[in-house]
Design a protein around this nucleic acid. Structure first.
Lengths: 335, 335
DNA sequence: TCAAGATGCTAATTCGAATTATTACAGGGT
DNA sequence: ACCCTGTAATAATTCGAATTAGCATCTTGA
């Protein structure tokens, strides 16, 4: 196995110094650098003959930039059970990284005792990358705080509360999206709402519930929040419009209603708030909104670039697009 | 932007020399190297506090080991149109990398003029990783040859012909899998076969066709090869069993036959050879074989480890598993 | 003829970590 | 006082390329 050629080798063959080879290679013609045409040709000829290519490692060492962007997730991203959730984000991330000429480093080595990955373990490799994109429904508070205090350049995909300082993020404006849904439902005559879902824990859940509460307050209508809900309780409470955090829960409600001989949206409207931690049946076309996952991925990488270049703390919420399904209709409840 | 910490910085903080930090970091306790427990603890404490991680670039410049494995594909892997193909491979790769404690570097930066990625461009970053897994139906011959001549540690997922030397690979034994299918069909009375598909170009295609030709020759039965085939031509030629390289083509043949009022496998048997470059309808349960994609990914990473440790050139073909569908039956052709 | 200026190239340094050779210092034995 | 042996840490060098300062050499112009 022939050892890889170095600039020193080329220099010897061309009878010049290593510095000259470097200058010729980088075509440096600017201030104070001059190489005789004859010499330049001679060096280029040797390079051509040998097929020499500069060692990118050495080059990067000098440039102080690895052009590597890290992607951290608490779990493997490729298994098909996770793919539905991660893929759109990663698609955007990959796209933008490609545009920026950066490679993506997946922190597959991050393994903790419990099986779940941790950003900071005994031998954290997070700093391998120039910066890092964080992906996941919720992110460990301590990890976040440490990222902030250690001033590691990173951007979270998804809004995050402060953790010992503002957390750079590109999120989805769930709050506005939910308000919009309530607005539409109110316009269709609905006055009795229910929010089904955690509404707490992850920021994304809290944001949705907050939007819900703001909207019902603004319209002066009735809105209740339940973590889990059977169809019976909801109907018994006089609810005419249900907002379900989880897509699959919403779909289940629709199916349950139909089994009871009820019409959706004739007797009950069901809206979904886009959370898809579980696979959902695709035969129910729920009305709700689309989370701009791919765009979030793209913007996160762009934001990370800004962090790296200017040390800023970008925070942005992207709008969710209304999705016209078949599960929102006029309220039929008597006033 | 906060500059990245160096060993020098750690050394200053701990009141020792850079060399000491390096020794502590690498836990060097072998011949002639001694660090007092007290000093070691002090250094480790600073490292822990700062979250310092060695610059992979510098590290790699000196020796060669990052615990970073590269993954090269000629196209983006996350878009949903590609995901079906890449995902199972990547799942295996990720799994094994996690086990090996390595991070994965996706070469998203590799961009060429034509839009299609190239392994070796002006500024190839392939050497950033310890080694590299190559993924794709077909891989550029020149790229392969250069990998071999430059002695870059890599393993191809999928068998590859020699390219200026043997190419390390973990492939699927398409040849044997196709022979097995023909064997089964012959046992059911089939004597007139047709192979539909490229049968050339990518090694995976050539292997399938080769297996087909070997099998029909061994059984002394009739076998023709057509790139594309209409159902009419096949039936007109007396074919009773069709082997379709592409899953979607096979499915299309089945649907076409049924539209003509023919029974599959009553009047015609259709086998698929597992190539899935296009999405296929999932309502046709084709008989054929399963390509062990995930296992190939796993083995490829294992093989890469061997390459890195022993400089070997592993070549292995994994068996494909027979898939009992509903499209292979007894031949009804008169003898 | 000599200083000023242009030209062409190279020596030396830098990047960050790993490694080898070497130094500094303690205590023990004679 | 002297040498010897451990012990603990550091100085110096290496990897390959990029860059800056600077050294020769050759023209000019007065």
């Amino acid at each position: 196995m022939a050892k890889r050629l170095t600039q020193q080798d080329i220099a010897r063959m061309a009878g010049v110094s290593q510095a000259t080879v470097s200058l010729v290679l980088n075509n440096r013609t600017d201030s104070g650098v001059r190489i005789a045409e004859e010499t330049r040709a001679r060096v280029l000829e040797v390079i051509r003959r040998t097929g020499y290519v500069a060692n990118p490692i050495a080059r990067r060492l000098h440039d102080q930039r690895n052009r590597i962007l890290g992607v951290f997730t608490y779990e493997a991203v490729f298994p098909s059970t996770r793919a539905d959730f991660y893929q759109p984000f990663l698609e955007g991330i990959e796209e933008q990284a490609e545009e920026a000429g950066c490679d993506l480093l997946l922190f597959t080595s991050a393994k903790a005792t419990s099986g779940k990955r941790r950003i900071f373990s005994d031998d954290s490799r997070i700093r391998l990358a120039d910066g890092c994109v964080l992906l996941g429904r919720s992110i460990d508070r301590d990890d976040l705080a440490q990222l902030v205090t250690e001033a590691i350049p990173f951007v979270s995909v998804g809004r995050r509360d402060d953790a010992g300082g503002p957390v750079p993020h590109i999120g989805a404006d769930y709050s506005a999206a939910v308000r919009d849904l309530v607005d539409r439902a109110v316009a269709l005559g609905h006055r009795e709402f229910a929010y089904v879902g955690a509404g707490t824990g992850a920021e994304s859940s809290a944001d949705r519930l907050r939007g819900f509460k703001q909207a019902v307050a603004a319209h002066g209508v009735k809105g209740t929040h339940v973590q889990f809900a059977g169809l019976g309780q909801l109907l018994g409470a006089g609810v005419t419009c249900v907002l379900s955090e989880e897509v699959s829960d919403g779909a289940a409600l629709v199916l349950a209603a139909r089994e009871r001989g009820l019409s959706v949206p004739g007797d009950l409207s069901v809206l979904t708030l886009g959370a898809a931690t579980r696979p959902a049946p695709d035969d129910v076309r729920l009305t709700g909104f689309r989370i701009p996952r791919r765009e979030m991925g793209r913007r996160a990488v762009q934001a990370l670039t800004e962090v790296l270049e200017h040390g800023t703390t970008p925070q942005e919420l992207l709008a969710c697009e209304f999705v016209e399904g078949t599960t929102l209709g006029h309220s039929t409840a008597q006033r």
